[in-house]
């Protein structure tokens, strides 16, 4: 157990160092960092002094080491565009993205898993065909278009829901939450649905495929032969075996939720990290881009690690092998 976990931990650290190298390469070689920090009328001597004081004349490895050391402490430098520390910007935007992602992941699971089970159990029924058509459309409808359609219908025509921003937020220490005000909750509805639809279509297809696979296995046939009730077989035996791989893949989908949050936040002007990132890309604000990249990599690595350890706990065969 210890050996397995420490091997995985080592791999994760290597991945983070590689991503860090890419992020640092961005910072160091895309555009001139000094040019981005000073104004037009700075003299050559002042530029030289700044270059020296930032340590940009040091060997590459030394600079990279310093970058990693600072990043570990949460220091990603100053944003070129907003002239604020990147870590402050991200801390300020993080709650908005996390609340949005969690609500939509929850929505997607709540609707997607039952629909997937239903389409697997009754593949010929009218509802199943409807669900599958819907999921094909969900794959083909770009996320930003779903958002625009919702805005047009519920925001512009019916005027039921606010079309941009987070509404009023409540400050809980450094965390700002939109869960506790009416306008915050109302603002959350459309972005959450937009973000959830694509995830939901994926979950429906995944659960359906896994469930169909499990229903074909010998132990399900044997369960039928024993005369167990179909309800017991479907929900207690088949479903449980379906959900193990499904949970793994859904865990790994968190990365894609964050990526699609970029689009959703842009459509609804949701003040989260994705909006920060997209503005950074169009203004070539490298420190923000680098920090965002590292953060996403970190989230991915941590989730991967948890999933691996869970596998180790759940699947006894792995324990025997090591």
């Amino acid at each position: 157990m210890f050996k397995f976990v420490s091997m995985r931990l080592l791999q994760s650290i290597i991945v983070m160092l590689v991503v860090g190298l890419i992020a640092f390469g961005l910072f160091r070689f895309v555009g001139d960092p000094v040019n981005n920090m000073v104004g037009q009328d700075t003299t050559l001597e002042e530029r030289e002094a700044l270059t020296e004081s930032l340590g940009l004349n040091d060997p590459f490895v030394v600079q990279y080491g310093r970058f990693v050391a600072k990043a570990v402490q949460g220091d990603f430098g100053m944003s070129y565009r907003l002239r604020q520390p990147v870590s402050d910007l991200i801390a300020e935007r993080f709650p908005a993205t996390l609340e949005l992602s969690l609500v939509s992941a929850f929505l997607a699971l709540l609707l997607g898993v039952p629909m997937g089970i239903y389409t697997a159990l009754k593949p010929k029924s009218l509802f199943s065909r409807g669900f599958m058509t819907l999921s094909l459309m969900g794959v083909s409808l770009p996320t930003f278009l779903i958002g625009i359609l919702l805005i047009l219908f519920f925001g512009v025509s019916l005027r039921w829901l606010p079309t941009f921003g987070r509404g009023e937020v409540v400050e809980l220490g450094w965390w700002s939450s939109g869960f506790f005000t009416a306008s915050g909750l109302k603002s959350l509805i459309m972005p959450a649905i937009t973000l959830a639809i694509f995830q939901m279509t994926l979950i429906v297809r995944l659960v359906r495929a896994e469930m169909l696979e499990v229903l074909r296995t010998d132990y399900i046939k044997f369960a039928h032969a024993r005369g167990l009730s179909p309800r017991l077989i479907n929900f207690s035996i088949a479903l449980r075996n379906t959900l193990v791989p499904v949970i793994t893949i859904i865990g790994l989908q968190v990365g894609s939720i964050i990526a699609f949050a970029i689009i959703t936040e842009s459509v609804f002007q949701w003040p989260g990290m994705g909006l920060l990132f997209i503005q950074a890309v169009s203004e070539v604000d490298i420190p923000v881009m680098a920090a965002y990249l590292l953060l996403i990599a970190f989230v991915f690595v941590v989730i991967n690690l948890i999933v691996d350890i869970l596998y180790f706990v759940v699947d006894p065969r792995l324990r025997v092998q090591s």
Binding site: L252, G255, S256, I258, A259, F260, I262, I263, F277, I278, V281, I296, A297, F300, N304
Partner: peptide, 9 residues
């Protein structure tokens, strides 16, 4: 493991 849209961005 990184979504395509993020890499393209």
């Amino acid at each position: 493991s990184f979504p395509a849209i993020l890499i393209a961005l």
